[in-house]
Amino acid sequence: MPVSLLTLGPVAAAVVAAGVATLFKSGPRTISGIRHFAAGVVFAAAAGEILPDVVHGNASAIATFVGGGLGLALMLVVKQTERWIPGPAGLIAAIGVDLLIDGLVLGIAMLAGEKAGLLLAIALTLEVLSLGLVLTTSLEPLLKSPLKVIASIGGLTLLLPLGALLATPASLLPAPMFTGLLALGLVALLYLVTEELLVEAHEVEDTPLITAMFFVGFLALLILEEVMS
C-alpha cells in the first residue's frame, strides 16, 4: 500500500475532529479519555511492530544508540518550541513539527513492513484526532470562523504526508543505518506516549474509566495485530 494512502486517515481524522469540535464542545474528560486510548494504541504499535525490528535488526549497538539519541534530541527540541515561541503560535509550531516527525516515523515503519505501517497509521490517526480537538479550541478565538479553523488544521496536517515522503530515501540506506532510523522512530513514539499524550491527559483528574482507556487501546491494537497475522 502506498504510504500516501496511509496518511489520508490521520489527515481526515484531524479535519473531522476540527469540524465536530466547532459544532460540539468536547469536555476535558472526553478529550482525556481519547488521549488515554490513543496513547495505548501508539504504545502497542511501538512495542509490537517497531521494537522487534530494532532488537532483531541488522544494527550494532552503536547504530541503535545513535538513532535513539537523535530521536530523543529531536523530540526535546519539539518540546522546547512552545517555550521559544509564546502563545498559540508556539503550540501550532510544535504541533506542526510533531506531525512532520510522525509522518517520517510512519514512512520508516512502512518501509519496515506493510503491516507495521498500517498499524502505526491507525495509531497516529487517533493521536491526530486528539490534536484536532485541542487545536480547534486554541484557534477559534484567533480565527473566529469555523471554516478557517477547519481549513487551517487540514493544511497543518499535510505536514504528516510530507514527513512520510521524506522517509522514502531511507530504503536506500544500509541495513544498520536503517535499523538506527527505526530506533529513532521508536524513541519518538515512546516520547509521544509518555511526555505528550499521557501528560496532557493527566491534566484532568482521572476516573477508573479514563485510566482504563489506555489499556483498552493497547489491547485493541494487539488484537487487531493478531487478526492481521
Rank of each mutant, 00 (worst) to 15 (best):
T136P: 12
E196C: 00
E205G: 14
F65D: 00
T22I: 03
P88Y: 14
A220Q: 04
T207F: 07
T211G: 11
L8Y: 01
L111Q: 12
T64C: 12
A12D: 11
V66W: 07
E82V: 15
T168F: 10
P161H: 04
L158H: 09
L23S: 13
I92E: 10
I101A: 14
L6P: 08
L104R: 02
L8S: 09
M213Y: 14
S32R: 09
A201D: 07
E195A: 09
L91I: 15
L160C: 08
G68I: 05
F178A: 02
T179M: 01
V199E: 12
P208N: 05
L159V: 09
L126S: 06
T30Y: 08
A151M: 09
G185R: 05
E127M: 00
A93E: 03
E203P: 06
M1K: 08
I150M: 03
K79D: 15
F65Y: 09
A13R: 03
Y191W: 11
A94V: 06
K25M: 13
L172A: 15
Y191E: 07
G155N: 05
S130N: 07
K115P: 00
L162Q: 04
A109W: 06
L99Y: 06
L124K: 04
G132E: 06
A116G: 07
L173A: 10
G69V: 07
L184W: 13
A46K: 01
I50A: 05
V77H: 00
L23Y: 11
Y191G: 06
P208G: 02
N58S: 12
V15M: 11
E226Q: 14
G48E: 09
L23Q: 13
T136N: 13
G40D: 03
D98Y: 05
L6H: 05
E200R: 08
L192S: 15
E49H: 15
S229V: 13
G68V: 03
L209Q: 13
A39D: 01
I153E: 02
L222I: 10
L192W: 00
E195W: 06
I153D: 01
G68R: 01
T211N: 14
A17H: 07
P88G: 15
L8H: 05
F215R: 01
L143H: 02
L221W: 03
E203L: 07
